[in-house]
Write a protein that binds this DNA or RNA. Structure first.
Lengths: 190, 190
DNA sequence: CTCTTAAATGAATAATTATTCAGTTATGTT
DNA sequence: AACATAACTGAATAATTATTCATTTAAGAG
């Protein structure tokens, strides 16, 4: 008996990400994914029932990995501002280093691929981010605004910043990153 | 001789926007666009040479209309903060009221449809926004950060805010909008 | 009112792409 | 080593979709 090769799943994901970045979800075909992954088209269907399942699985995996990475090195027992800065930087770094995944996730939202189940499941994973903002409000550091509004404000400038750094081909400098963080902090603080 | 019907172009655009929002660029077909627009598939090809041309034209039109609307009622002779507030609010309002166009523009970036010409042309149209930020720096109101970084910061929270208001089905309240503007201003000001 | 011309139609065709499957290969098990 | 089993292959098929075209319709010119 022959067993499935775990690395193949990884190859398929990588191929898909790379192709979606090059041509968008609209332009990616199953045979192209297979070719890029170095396997036969038929093999792709052993690993994923169909294109829908492939995209949903990959989307969920990207979402999970991203949120997990956001809280790396975050220690709730440390002072708030330093913890917030760590999460802020983790988000920025994740999105810089995994830009292809960011593009995939963006493209998935208005696509025929994502199913309700995937959407519902992945939405829950955002809880820790809400908790972080709540803490800032509880400790009287952040403005009394709606938690969601504060979170969106934090996330928004990072998303846009990374996106534009990528498209304009100008990597974010230390100075710009510092400026971005300061603007974010000054905007949210009381 | 029969002339082309100007309203048909509008119908085609509306149909495309509506379908792209429902199923994403990946899920929209030419015959569906025609059916939704209330015309025959063949007629679509009288108005647009092919799918590429349709998408590029629509993208450019959306981009142009958006930037124009951003500077409605902006008067450079008035004090900076009030002018900035007007542009900020125009951006927010445009994106709320034209969410379908926002989605189309987002989806186009990593698609096989947009051609170099369209990308280059539409990029130039952003100049007035840069000018606005420069003015804020010249008048010593904004931080000394990179103009691009400041602009991205301003835009980012609006984009994310509108997107999330839409998906969470919770329209932005006056209070939230005010909070958003204050965070943006506090973040950018010296 | 008639004629001309271009728009409009939608079924037919041409491409393209998802998916299957009969045959092949490789790997664990005995 | 021989077997059983499931992965693997890629050409063939099934679906789907872009595009064309012979025909019909309608509006402006004379």
């Amino acid at each position: 008996m022959k067993l499935k090769d775990d690395r193949k799943t990884e190859q398929i994901f990588e191929a898909t990400l790379s192709l979606v970045n090059e041509k968008g979800l609209a332009g990616v075909t199953m045979s192209e994914i297979a070719r890029t992954a170095g396997i036969a088209t038929g093999t792709l269907y052993i690993y994923f029932k169909n294109k829908d399942e492939l995209i949903n699985t990959l989307f969920a995996e990207c979402r999970k990995a991203s949120i997990d990475s956001y809280f790396k090195n975050y220690d709730a027992s440390k002072p708030f501002k330093s913890g917030f800065a760590i999460v802020w930087m983790n988000i920025l770094q994740y999105r810089i280093q995994n830009f292809e995944k960011v593009v995939l996730m963006d493209q998935c939202y208005h696509s025929p691929f994502l199913n309700e189940c995937t959407i519902k499941m992945t939405k829950q994973w955002k809880q820790p981010l809400f908790k972080l903002i709540e803490r800032g409000k509880d400790e009287n550091v952040f403005k009394e605004a709606d938690t969601f509004a504060l979170l969106i404000f934090m996330i928004g400038s990072i998303h846009e910043g990374v996106k534009n750094a990528h498209y304009s081909q100008k990597p974010l400098t230390k100075a710009t990153i510092d400026a971005m963080f300061n603007m974010c902090w000054d905007g949210m603080k009381k």
